[in-house]
């Protein structure tokens, strides 16, 4: 069996007195497509934000590609990571946000070329060619010269995906990427994710409320509640034959809200 690309070991995280993650442990295999589902506030977004180094952990450890994420070796011990270590580790990970977070003062093309040019020193012509390939992959090549304000929500999110891919990360994190979209725009973004999942061997972690998509997309589903993993397993098992009562209740509510699973 191959070594996991992500190892989360006893991670805890609190915001003030609210403990969001409680002694959380799980691993992700290279190339695995993992769906994180669960009610709001269950900690699933927090774990993505911790992996992207947007939130610090309060306890435990995380290893990405066999290297500690929030710690670094120094004089034979693991100490808190400095900015240089975090910078090195971030290069392995890309993230797409719920609210896109495109840079509004830059064109679509510049949004995608910025990171390769600034962080890898990729020459402009090469960065442009790479960006155009990525924009073509997400169906946005014809909008390269436009500003984000001129795009629909779905188009913005497709550009955000291209931007995150531009650094060729080993791991991609998708945080409720369709939650801010009008229903008719959801499918265009999900199609891009399907394509990515089918055509690349990237490890992908997806936080979503689209259960049907989570079922089709993922190799494994983690059901979160109260900062813990309540149940995990292949999508068929989780969605058609959940073992835990909390999972069953959650899925019943989702079905009652009108979603097909």
């Amino acid at each position: 069996m191959t070594d996991p690309i992500i190892r989360i070991e006893g991670v805890s995280k609190s915001f003030g007195n609210f403990e969001v993650l409680k002694d959380l442990s799980f691993t992700v295999a290279p190339g695995e497509k993992l769906a994180l589902i669960g009610p709001s506030g269950s900690g699933k977004t927090t774990i993505l934000r911790i992996l992207m180094t947007l939130e610090e952990i309060n306890g435990g450890g995380i290893f990405v590609d066999d290297e500690p994420l929030w710690h670094m070796p120094k004089n034979g011990a693991l100490v808190k990571a400095d900015e240089a270590h975090l910078h090195k580790m971030r290069a392995k990970i890309g993230m797409v946000f719920q609210l896109f977070n495109l840079f509004p003062h830059k064109t679509v093309l510049e949004n995608v070329t910025l990171a390769p040019m600034l962080t890898k020193g990729t020459p402009k012509a090469e960065a442009n060619a790479l960006a155009m390939d990525l924009l073509a992959m997400v169906g946005m090549a014809d909008k390269a010269s436009q500003k984000p304000a001129e795009l629909s929500g779905g188009q913005k999110q497709r550009v955000a995906i291209a931007r995150a891919l531009a650094l060729r990360p080993k791991i991609m994190l998708f945080d409720e990427v369709t939650s801010a979209l009008d229903p008719e725009l959801v499918e265009e973004v999900l199609n891009v994710l399907r394509k990515l999942a089918d055509e690349t061997d990237m490890t992908m972690l997806l936080v979503t409320h689209e259960m049907n998509f989570a079922h089709d997309f993922s190799d494994r589903v983690l059901f979160f509640d109260g900062g813990r993993i309540v149940e995990s397993g292949p999508p068929d098992q989780i969605f058609t034959n959940p073992q835990e009562e909390r999972t069953q209740t959650f899925l019943r509510k989702i079905v009652a809200a009108g979603q097909r699973i």
Binding site: A115, T119, R163
Partner: peptide, 12 residues
Amino acid sequence: GQWEAAKAINLS
């Protein structure tokens, strides 16, 4: 979100 996006694409 702009700060976070900049961090996510690894800008210094």
